[in-house]
Each structure stands twice: as C-alpha cells, then as structure tokens.
Design a protein around this nucleic acid. Sequence first.
RNA 1: GGUCCCGUAGCUCAGCUGGAUAGAGCAACAGCCUUCUAAGCUGUAGGUCUUUGGUUCGAAUCCAAACGGGAUCACCA
Length: 594
Amino acid sequence: MNIEKFIQEQAAASIETLYGKVGDELIQVQKTRKEFEGDYTLVVFPLLKASRKSPEMTAAEIGEHMTAASPALNGFNVIKGFLNLALDPAFWGARFAEIAADEKFGLGQPSGRTVMVEYSSPNTNKPLHLGHIRNNLLGYSVASILAANGNEVIKANLINDRGIHICKSMLAWQLYGGGETPESSGMKGDHLVGKYYVEFDKHYKAEIKELAAQGMAEDEAKQNAPLMLAAQEMLRKWEAKDPETIALWETMNGWVYEGFDKTYKDLGVDFDKVYYESQTYLLGKNIVEEGLAKGVLYRREDGSVWIDLTADGLDEKLLLRSDGTSVYMTQDLGTAYQRFEQYKLDELIYVVGNEQNYHFQVLKLVLKKLGYDWADHIYHLSYGMVELPEGKMKSREGTVVDADDLMDGMVAEARQMSEELGKLDGCTEEQAEAVGRMVGLGALKYFILKVDPKKTMLFDPRESIDFNGNTGPFIQYTHARIRSVLRKADETGVDYSGKVDPNAGFVQAEIEIIKQLADYPSVVCAAGETLSPSLVAAYVYDLAKLYNGYYHDHQIMREENQAVRRMRLQLCLQVARMIRSGMALLGIDVPERM
RNA sequence: GGUCCCGUAGCUCAGCUGGAUAGAGCAACAGCCUUCUAAGCUGUAGGUCUUUGGUUCGAAUCCAAACGGGAUCACCA
C-alpha cells in the first residue's frame, strides 16, 4: 500500500468534516524529519484559510480528529504549523508482513508501453574511455529501472562504424602498421585500432607543420596535407564499395568489435538491438524530400537543403549536402522514424552527452515541424562530461582514462584490499576473483551513478575511488554481512521461514528500517519518471546505513527470545533483498561474502 | 552574440513537484573489536546555499538580473 496516500486520505476526510472540502493540493503530507517525533507530517499552513484558526489550533484539531478516526494512528504532536502523526507499531508490522509476502515488491504493474533506450553508441576508431563508461552505466541502469516500472524496454546501440575518422585509423594502419594484428601484437583489437588513430594524428600534425614551414596558411595546410587527402580518398572508395577498402574496413572493425564485446561484458551491459551506421546512414533522405514538398525545408542554389530555425531562437541547419549526401541529422531523422514505425514505440530515449544538446533540440524541432506527433516522445537523456582535475579528457592528447585500464585497476585494488583484510581466507581462487570483480566494479559503478546525470562530474585518477563511506562496497559489505548472519542461522538450524508476525514487538530502529523498505516502490517509480539512477543509489545507501546502525546496536542470532530472533532474521532477509534489488537496478552485483 | 546546463562545508556530492534547526561521504580530530564480518559504529569541528532584487505565511528550491564556470551554434559525428 501507499502509506503517504493513506495518510493523505485520512487527513482529507478529517479536514472535510472539520472545515469542509478543500483542494487536494492543500493537503501536504511528507515524511517527518528525523529530529521530530512521528512518522508523517501534515503541513497545516495551507489549511488556515479553511480553518480560520491559528496554525497550532488547526493542527491540534486535525490531529485529534485523525487519531480518533483511525486505529492506525496512535498519537500526534504539534510544532508550529506542523502536525506530526505517529503510526502504530502494528501498522508498520503489517507493512513488513506485506513486503515479505510480496515477491514482486517494488516492481511496477505492466504499463503496456514500449520504450527504446539507445546508449553507448561508440565510434569504431578507438577504445572506450571513462566518458563512455558513464554513458553505458546510465543507459543500462535507466533501461533496468524502466523495465522495473513495467515497461517493455529495448536496449539499442547504434555503432558509428563509418566515416572519415574510421578511414584515418585504416590509413595509418596501412601505412605504418606493418601487418600488425591483435594476434601478432597481443593487443586488444579496439586498442590496436585506437593506436593507429593516434598515429594518424601524429603524422598528420607533422605534415601540417611542414606545410606551414613552407609558407602555407594553417587552414589550407590542414585541408591539403597528403594524409588528409588520402583519408578522404579512402572514404570515397568506401562509399563506392571498393572491395579492398571494404575488406580492410571489415577486418579492422572486426577487431574493434571483439574488443568492445569484452569491455561490454566486463562492464556488465548488453543490448537487444545493434544498429550499424553503415546500414542506416542513407536513411532520412525521403523525409527530407517530404519536408521540401511541404515547404518546411528549402533548397539553396548549390543544391543543399536547410531548415530555418531562427524564429525558434536557433540557427539555420543543414539537412542534406550540396552533393546530395546526408549528414548526421539526416540519419537521425530517418532512424527515429524507422524505430517508431517498426516498434510502435511510446518513447525513444537517447543517452547522449550534453555536448549534443543542440543537436537533439534541432532533431525534435525538425520532426515537429514536419508534423510527426511522436517527436514529443523523443527524450534526450543528456549527461554531463566526466572531467579530470586538469580539465576535459582529450583522446588525441592522451589524457583519456581508458575504460579497460580503469576497470582492471579497480578490480586489482579491490582484490588487494580483500587480501589485506583477510576477508577471503578459505575461499577458492575463483571465488576471490569473482568478489574482487564485483567489488571493484561496484565501487566504480556506484561512484558514477550516484551523481545526478546532468551534472558534470570530476574524476581524479590519482586519488582512487573510495571503498569506504558512501560507496558501492559499503553497500555490498552490508549485504555480505547480512548473508553471513543468515548463513549462520541456516547452519545452526534456526528457522525463520514462514509468515511475518505483525505484532512481533518491534523496536524503533526496526520500524525505521521497515519505513525505508516500504519506501522502495515509490523510489523505483520516481527514478523511472525522472530517469535518475542516482535516486536509487541514494535510497540503497540510506537503507544500508540504517541497517548498519541497527546491526551495531542489536543482537540478531544471539537474541534469546525466539519470536524476536525470528522477526529480526526476517527483517535482515528483506533488507538484503532490497539491497540486492536496488543495486541490480544500478547494474551492480552484491556478494555473499567479502 | 544566440541557445542550453551548472554554481550548496577544504574536497566529492545529496537536498523530490517551495516547508521545521541545509544533509551525507572523504580529509582532520577524539573514541569503539575476548561478543552475529571494524570495507563497520559513535562523537567533535567545518556553511553569507555565488550575489542582488522579486513572488509569499515560508525560498537552497520558483521568477528576474548580475557575476563565475562549462557545452554548443560545421557541407564532422
């Protein structure tokens, strides 16, 4: 049941009898702040007009009436204009029983809606870095959260496998690679290709410098450097389907895909549908034609097609080049159309960095002007950049934090920590390895997902990600601790299965935990509405923190009263379950021991 | 210049559609392991919520302006 709503209804009923009917928006119920006594608080200020009495009087009257009317309420206090209502322990006990019995607790009813989440969408000319990690984790988590809210979710990846940047890597490999392959070099495929992307840039810069020394202007040098001309020539060949070029392209992209597959696997993300730009880049031209016919778009003398968005505060935007070839925007128009058609999507979410805010603003506006109603159901989940202490990451300047390196580092650190603490003595090598992975990745994932997506975040590679405090490992540790207690119960034959007794004599700390457990569905729902994994992260952290305090102050297995011990074990079980469930929404696994 | 985002403790971040004395973690300091996992728990200290106006019973939150930081405005993607 939705407790807040329950209180709201009780309050509405009492207010109506006392003062007459008032609007729902005036009945403001919120959780009581920790420093005050009570569970829920009714803010009475908005009701003063109806009551025509002082805040204190009004609150007292409503409090009296509500506690008399509802057996679930066993007391109240008034502080200034705030009416703090206390619920009966048995009421919380009933909620606890409800939660324990509900296997789908926290999961929303099927919504009948289909949502596509596009995320990751890498270029195949270099390996993934920290920025991609944020993208992938966000996309995966948002997809999980939407699924938990009862939506049919399609995870999509649009791989940018063509274009001039790919040709640069290919060309450099041809020129300087000496036939090097992932096998011959022992390098991961995406890293190998990335190496030649950097190599291209190095030689290209040298050429520019040389041309400049010969007196050529910089812009001109950039355009006329032999390497650039060769790369452009290669792109033309690719577009003309030159067999040799295509073969090289397929080979090198194949290396990259193998590399990406490993990175995705390590990260724990996956996709239901993979699109390749080489197969979609021609889409959208017919939409442009349609726009021309409708007069929404216009053609310039040189043949290029544009849309004028100056009336909307934006600029003019190119949609088709003068040679008739498409640009990024053309393709996105086409793929969006195709997806809404094919899957009858209710929503299409693009997880893309905020550097592309303008692009998506334009995309939606163009579709809207073309008369497509579904344009309103495109949502750009725009996330901030991950910055280093010295500023933005620049792949060409080698200041990127590589995804694979970062993950390996985190895992190694987690492993070392486990060993130092002696936590995994007696475990097999495989178990220790698995825990190290879980904890290392848990630290990384939580570190990234606890931050509001739209904010720029800072990552300092010299200061490793914490394992203490508000971190993934803290939460994982709490889970492992609980499992340890439950194992002990199993080993000693203490039975805690069966129904929860709602009158088991809960102490306040237990009620606080039950309150937090009861909150889970509304958090999952809010996270789905706002596409914010950070809400789930904060929730799980609060739960773990509450539990740790409780664990510190109360005996569980050593509790002598069998009924109380049973209830405590059941409570532990539910906390572990909600931690596991919440962390799963973040794409984080929790260990049985650590 | 246009559009958009951000500004909260020394650092990294929470603070939901306006509500009570602005919260965590890290770092610092002081404590707690012969007792279910100390990756834990407790305490101390740390704030002009960038600034100024406005809206109102009430503003970190909403509005406006200023200041500071970032992104973007390509026949790149």
